[in-house]
Every structure is written in structure tokens, then in C-alpha cells.
């Protein structure tokens, strides 16, 4: 079953003083995310990621199209009870302490009264919020601590589906690692995670599948391995001996020379030709290593296609 399905979901905003100028924030988006998947929604700033999340959360109404969440609609409170949401750069009631805030959200989410205190404590512990900070007012929290509180409120009521808008924002490297582990553990618990990010290494490390969006338009969707393999492979060749360098350069390849050692990255299709030259020039071949295309390569290629890239 799909946890999320969108059907030509589209959003125009009216801009200008008289609100007469429509601006398309999201072009018709059709997307399916099966249950139990970690799904990355990638795009540069202003690509339409947050608009998509707000549409899915029912915070803004679509201009056209529709979406289904856990086979229902977001307007249904029973569906909303099963989802968690971390907004981008979250801001909370800063006159509350972390414990008070989470208790309030637990009440609103329908966590039974007898369970609230234990659930709040265990969730704050899970997101790594220091024990002496939980009774401090949120106005005294750093950005990273607020992000942890944000993640805590999204998972507090043990939702089936978690939406995270830029969850690593404001976190230091250790914090990012912890959040990555936490997202992976949510998947282990059978939950579906939909998260938006522009940090590609996070998506590559975590996601089963990703979608790439730019200028409000879906540019690609699929498994990370499928996407990167679609770019075709390159090979890194390392050799010793300068006699072959001019001939390799003549093939249009760049060389990096460090002392007697030379390196060059060549397309797989050109490998035999390069190796023949090296043998002919009596160069000593030290290594031939495949260079895997990264999600970043795919991402940049998709952004370069149509519309001239990121906005």
C-alpha cells in the first residue's frame, strides 16, 4: 500500500499588490511513496519542496489535483493522528519548556494521560536532548536544540508516517549523524519517512528512493543506485612512467601528475584504448578503479536539463 500518493498536485500563488499575478510554485506532481520506505525529496532552495510538504499537510490548499495520505485524506483527524511533521526551521512556543511543549503535543495527539510523562521523557532522551535542558524555556535553546525538539514532537505519538522538512538543518556533524541514525531506526520500526533536503549526502546515505524537484517540477524519481548507474561509469587509471602522458592527453583526457605517478579518469568505453597506449609506451599500470557516479552527479545533471537549472 502507498503511504503517500499525489495526483497532479499543483499550486499557484497569487502575487502582487492586487494579487493578480499567478506564480506557479508546484507544477502537477504525481508521486507514490510505498509504506515502510525512506523517501528523499531533493531540490535546491526555492525548488518547491516546502510547498509540496505544506500541500501534503493540508496547510495550504492545492490549486488543482489531490493527494492521499495512508489511503485517506489529510483533512481526516484520524489520518492526522498517524502522521508526524517537522516543519522547516521550526519555531515553538518559547515560553514553554521542552517537557511542557511535548506534553501539550501529546495531549493534542491523543496520547493517553497515563502514558504521556513516560513517552515525553523517552522521546526527549531518544533525540539526545540533555537532561538538564528539558526544564529550560525554549527561548534559551540553540538552533540545534530546537531542531531536536522539533524531531521529538514529530515522533512523540509514534506515527506511522513521518514528514521531515530539512531535518538536518542547524545540526552539527554529530547531531546530523544522530538524526541520520534516528531516521534509519524509524524505518526499522516499520515507519515511512518522507524528508526533504538539499544535502545530497544525507539522502544518499539514507533513502530507499529519492525524487528530484527543481523550479516546482519533478525532474526524476527512483532508487539512488538506479539513478547513479544511469549516468554510465568512469574508470580511474593510475600509472608510472611519463612516456604515455602526451598520447593520453591527445585523447582529450585530463592528467594529474604527482612525481612519477600520473592519474586520469576516463570513460569506461575508452579504457581499452588507454590501456593499449600505456602498454605500448611501457608505462607501469598501478591501478584501474571504477569511479561510481554519485547522487550529486545525477542531481546536477537533472538540474541542468530544461529550465536552465535551479531557481
Amino acid at each position: 500500500m502507498n503511504a503517500i500518493a499525489t495526483f497532479a498536485l499543483e499550486k499557484f500563488y497569487l502575487t502582487g499588490f492586487w494579487r493578480k499575478h499567478p506564480k506557479q510554485a508546484l507544477k502537477p506532481l504525481t508521486l507514490e511513496v510505498p509504506e515502510g520506505e525512506i523517501f528523499g525529496y531533493l531540490g535546491p532552495n526555492g525548488a518547491g519542496k516546502t510547498t509540496t510538504l505544506r500541500l501534503l499537510m493540508g496547510l495550504v490548499k492545492p490549486t488543482a489535483g489531490s493527494s492521499k495520505i495512508l489511503n485517506g485524506t489529510i483533512e481526516d483527524p484520524a489520518i492526522r493522528a498517524q502522521i508526524g511533521f517537522l516543519p522547516e526551521q521550526p519555531y515553538f512556543y518559547d515560553y514553554l519548556t521542552a517537557v511542557e511543549l511535548l506534553t501539550y503535543y501529546a495531549q493534542l495527539s491523543g496520547v493517553p494521560a497515563g502514558e504521556r510523562q513516560r513517552r515525553v521523557a523517552s522521546t526527549l532522551d531518544r533525540v539526545g536532548l540533555a537532561k538538564d535542558a528539558v526544564h529550560t524555556q525554549l527561548r534559551k535553546f540553540s538552533k540545534g536544540m530546537l531542531q531536536r525538539v522539533g524531531i521529538a514532537q514529530a515522533i512523540l505519538h509514534q506515527p506511522k508516517l513521518v514528514f521531515l522538512d530539512e531535518p538536518m538543518s542547524g545540526l552539527d556533524p554529530i547531531g546530523r549523524r544522530e538524526v541520520r541514525d534516528l531516521i534509519a531506526s524509524l524505518k526499522d520500526e516499520g515507519k515511512t519517512v518522507f524528508f526533504s533536503t538539499h544535502i545530497l549526502s544525507d539522502a544518499e546515505a539514507l533513502c530507499d528512493r529519492v525524487a528530484i524537484v527543481a523550479n516546482g517540477e519533478l525532474r526524476g524519481v527512483g532508487a539512488v543506485a538506479e539513478m547513479t548507474s544511469s549516468l554510465g561509469g568512469n574508470m580511474e587509471v593510475v600509472w608510472e612512467g611519463e612516456g604515455a602522458n602526451e598520447a593520453i592527453k591527445a585523447l582529450g583526457r585530463e592528467l594529474r601528475v604527482a612525481g612519477a605517478i600520473t592519474r586520469s579518469v576516463v570513460p569506461e568505453s575508452m579504457l581499452n584504448q588507454v590501456l593499449d597506449i600505456l602498454r605500448a609506451k611501457n608505462a607501469r599500470i598501478i591501478s584501474v578503479t571504477p569511479v561510481r557516479a554519485t547522487l550529486e552527479d545525477y542531481f546536477l545533471q537533472k538540474l541542468a536539463q530544461t529550465s536552465g537549472g535551479a531557481d
Partner: peptide, 14 residues
């Protein structure tokens, strides 16, 4: 304005 409403209205609150 402060977007505190986001984390309330995405819960089972009408």
C-alpha cells in the same frame, strides 16, 4: 507568522 500553528494543525485538531 511564527508558524507554531503548523505543529498544531497537523495533529488531530480541527
Amino acid at each position: 507568522d511564527k508558524r507554531t500553528v503548523y505543529t498544531v494543525l497537523t495533529r488531530p485538531v480541527q
